[in-house]
Design a protein around this nucleic acid. Structure first.
Length: 195
DNA sequence: CGTAAGATGAAG
DNA sequence: TTCATCTTACGG
């Protein structure tokens, strides 16, 4: 079975990249220690997609989505939450993969402290929660390259297509018919397993 | 300028 | 189901 490098994946369009990012680990070092989580749920957003921030074209906020794949796109929403995306595709295409949920691996005490809760399964089972676990409390990392503050590491065990469930995206009102949400079947850290 | 909506989360 | 909370984008 072929294994893709992270460069391979982020150069693809977001719909192709989103399922391939499942099982990858996202990490961040901090003075207090390193946190690491396994990505278990993703969603693809594309420029031609009415539900995407890039649909209206380049703005100050969405500019990173139009960069070459391999950067972060971080946005603020609902007056209180930050969400993390991996930008994909070539320069000029407004594409990104939203990281919706992850399984805590390392630095669990740090993440519990950042989240203010104790239950493992509620630590990062949602995009805002995932950002909190990574210590993201503003948008300064938006547009930065992977591998600087935030890094991705290859899956420790391979993910096969049969492990992946596909469905409609969460929390949007436009283009809900697009099956661009991907998650690991049966994984307890997925945000909304039933959809 | 004024304002409505939003890729959410937590509590009731 | 409701509400907290505020940036962004768009209309005037």
């Amino acid at each position: 079975m072929h294994r893709y490098s992270i460069q391979d994946i982020v150069s693809m369009n977001s719909v192709s990249a989103a399922p391939l990012l499942l099982g990858w680990q996202i990490s961040r070092r901090a003075p207090e220690g390193t946190v690491r989580l396994k990505i278990v749920e993703t969603e693809a957003y594309r420029q031609t997609d009415p539900a995407s921030h890039s649909f209206a074209g380049i703005t100050k906020r969405t500019a990173p989505m139009f960069e070459a794949g391999g950067r972060l796109y971080v946005y603020f929403t609902y007056g209180m939450h930050y969400c993390v995306n991996i930008v994909t595709g070539p320069t000029g295409e407004g594409e990104a993969v939203l990281l919706r949920a992850a399984e805590p691996i390392d630095g669990i005490d740090i993440m519990k402290r950042r989240r203010g809760i104790d239950e493992l399964k509620n630590l990062a089972n949602g995009p805002g929660k995932l950002a909190q676990c990574l210590g993201i409390t503003d948008t300064v990392l938006s547009g930065t390259l992977l591998g600087v503050e935030i890094s991705l590491e290859a899956p420790t065990e391979s993910v096969s297509p049969s492990d992946i469930s596909i469905g409609p995206r969460v929390g949007i009102k436009k283009a809900i018919e697009q099956p661009w949400r991907f998650y690991l079947s049966g994984n307890p850290y997925v945000s909304k397993p039933w959809r």
